[in-house]
Design a protein around this nucleic acid. Sequence first.
DNA 1: GTGAAAGCGCTAACAG
DNA 2: CTGTTAGCGCTTTCAC
Lengths: 339, 339
Amino acid sequence: MKVTITDIAQAAGLSPATVSLVLNNRPSRISESTKKRIKVLAQEMGYRPNFAAVNLRTSRSYTIGLIVPDIRNDHYATYAKGLEDFCQEMNWSMILCTTNQSPLREKQYIEALYAKNIDGIALATTAPYADNSIYTSNRELLLSMKIPIVQSDLTNYKEPINAVVCDHEKGGYIATLHLLSLGHRKIAFITGPSSLEAAQSRLNGCKRAFKSYNLKWNDSLVYEGDYTYESGLNGIDYLCDKEFTAVFALNDSMAYGVYNGLSKYNLSVPEDISVIGYDDHFLSAILTVPLTTIRQPVYEMGKEAARILIHAAEHPDTKPVITSFELKLIVRKSTRKIN
Amino acid sequence: MKVTITDIAQAAGLSPATVSLVLNNRPSRISESTKKRIKVLAQEMGYRPNFAAVNLRTSRSYTIGLIVPDIRNDHYATYAKGLEDFCQEMNWSMILCTTNQSPLREKQYIEALYAKNIDGIALATTAPYADNSIYTSNRELLLSMKIPIVQSDLTNYKEPINAVVCDHEKGGYIATLHLLSLGHRKIAFITGPSSLEAAQSRLNGCKRAFKSYNLKWNDSLVYEGDYTYESGLNGIDYLCDKEFTAVFALNDSMAYGVYNGLSKYNLSVPEDISVIGYDDHFLSAILTVPLTTIRQPVYEMGKEAARILIHAAEHPDTKPVITSFELKLIVRKSTRKIN
DNA sequence: GTGAAAGCGCTAACAG
DNA sequence: CTGTTAGCGCTTTCAC
């Protein structure tokens, strides 16, 4: 049978209260000798706390929920790992919720997490859904629950909220600047969905870089993708009859599509066309032609998100914070100087 | 404030017990009219069950734990997704535990999961640890807790246990057969750690294929890797002065290393050397030279693992089952016929 | 220095 | 057809 705090109390000839105080290292005026005795006894009898009881009593679960679209995506997996590593250090747990971009499923998760007295939620749903009404009703549900939340990326909130973010405008800027500084002037862009704020920011950064070089922006060299490999391929099909010397794919997956799209037209990277990506997927370093890209410190963002959440759970009146992370240009072999 | 079952009971002029029965759709002899009344009331008052109380009362958490070495690894991410999708269908939750191959961390997780009244654990730690004593003590701990367990891959248990497995001997066999049927006779093998049972099985399958062709096995063309990209690279460095026309890397990550290792020596795939992998990582399909490989139905295995666990939790006296999945040869562009 | 008692929200047996 | 009662294991005043 499971050993409870009462069992220990009985064995020690003490009350459950005393045992509880000792085992939780609470400030109390209990003699060192009984403290010792209780701890030894607990050890010997194989005591393990029952979290459900603690949870019921204190309304604390020492558990956070992570809501992501897809854990197979390296970006979210890395974020999850950051969160999870920090939780582990703190002896917390993490419940993984993958929504497959379904707002209904998201709603179910939010309610389930609430029922579990979750102590915080890390939201990494970047994409607003087609059905916006459910989307916003989920937000409201979430906010009404008064559980600490930390959001990644998306920042278009009216309410103050915890967030870990990157300055994507700057990311777009430095990537474009890199191409410009290598002499490229005809640059094609394969963007993310225009409905996403972060995707818009990246593109704005690109435009700013053009402006800083006094170049005029050419919309016909912009293809709107959806962050998938396929849309990278499609982008090249769209661009094939246009003139350009470099492609900026606004995430790495699309850059891989670009690679293969270009090779279909017998164009090689970087000899014929320079390619730059965005994200620094772990794969980008090991491609036959390693990809130049912009790195987001996703793992660190995950850790920080967990830190914020756990802190907020333990200090309920903390003001929301937005932590910003630096993007970094990683130069590899897929971009080259031209004249 | 949170609405409880007692609040509803009061509002309805009934007892908490009645409300509980209705809200859980338990077989009972409660009139349809009061049923309706309670449900409407619960809805109106915004009732949400408190799982901690249910958990404490019933010792059930409707939660399973997944223990994996690393969620960034596509294999485990896919497995996790399978589990999680099934859990979601059943309204269960999944706690993610990544061990980074640390047996100590694994131990901590096991204890934490136990404390949470976890209803089942999916173990996907394929690698026995260097320190075998902790490793086995973890197993014993796990078994002593009498929680349903489902193991993937590793099957060298004395005790009967639930498992989802692939016949890796056969996988090694069909991959090797593929190369042999294309005319290759000098085949190099880059294997997994010999300490792993599954790695051994794969290699045994390779040997059986050789035997079936009446060919003699050549140990000098075998390099023992550790399933990492780097060890694929190293394998080629080791093999570079030997004669071979094909390489079988016993997982896809190493195959990517092989790709890049070969290109270092100006050998191209498949013109000079045919390459076959194992796993069917999502990437293998989108490489510039898409990789021929053996597919494990990992997602389905995850789903099945969740099914087994949830079933076992609900029917405590079920006998352990081992479900075996079919491996499949996926022929792409990295292997070619020679004469 | 330590103990008694109450109660978190829910369920399960039994009693009407 | 529905209510009463007891209790899951733990924490937390407050009392001694």
